[in-house]
């Protein structure tokens, strides 16, 4: 998984809430086919927005506390976090175009 870290509850504060850059959190489950199908798109986004938006994954079964905190009722659910706050929430499969539209709202514009 190029540039995409699977994170645990104890790392969430340091890696997500206190991140200097926006963090796109992928709430997924190992049994979820659509979550798996999203991985290539997320890998492309990690490459395209490297250093501007961090992408991390949270397994809702392994890390139920985070899932409960963010009221994750289905997977895949994605939350864009910025400054420790959930700024935008999406669910289901998405194209690279739609992901880019979301990411562009949280970065300083194309270089």
């Amino acid at each position: 998984m190029a540039g995409i870290e699977e994170i645990k509850t104890e790392d969430f504060e340091a890696l997500v809430l206190k991140s200097d850059i926006p963090v796109f959190v992928d709430f997924h489950a190992t049994w979820c086919g659509p979550c798996k199908a999203m991985m290539p798109a997320l890998e492309d986004m990690a490459l395209e927005y490297a250093g501007e938006v961090k992408i991390v994954k949270v397994d809702i079964d392994a890390e139920p506390k985070i899932a409960e905190t963010y009221n994750i009722l289905g997977v895949p659910t994605f939350i864009m976090m910025q400054g420790g706050e959930a700024k935008e929430r999406l669910s289901g499969g998405m194209t690279r175009g739609k992901l880019a539209a979301v990411f562009e709202r949280f970065v300083g514009g194309a270089q």
């Binding site: 290539p40 798109a41 492309d44 395209e48 499969g93 194209t95 690279r96 175009g97 739609k98 539209a101």
Partner: peptide, 24 residues
């Protein structure tokens, strides 16, 4: 706008956009 945003990538670097355009 989704299909057009999905087209706006280099095909050799991001070939999966072809399927994204169709899905969008």
């Amino acid at each position: 706008a989704d299909p057009i945003l999905s087209m706006a990538w280099g095909l050799d670097r991001t070939p999966a956009i072809a399927a994204d355009v169709l899905n969008a």
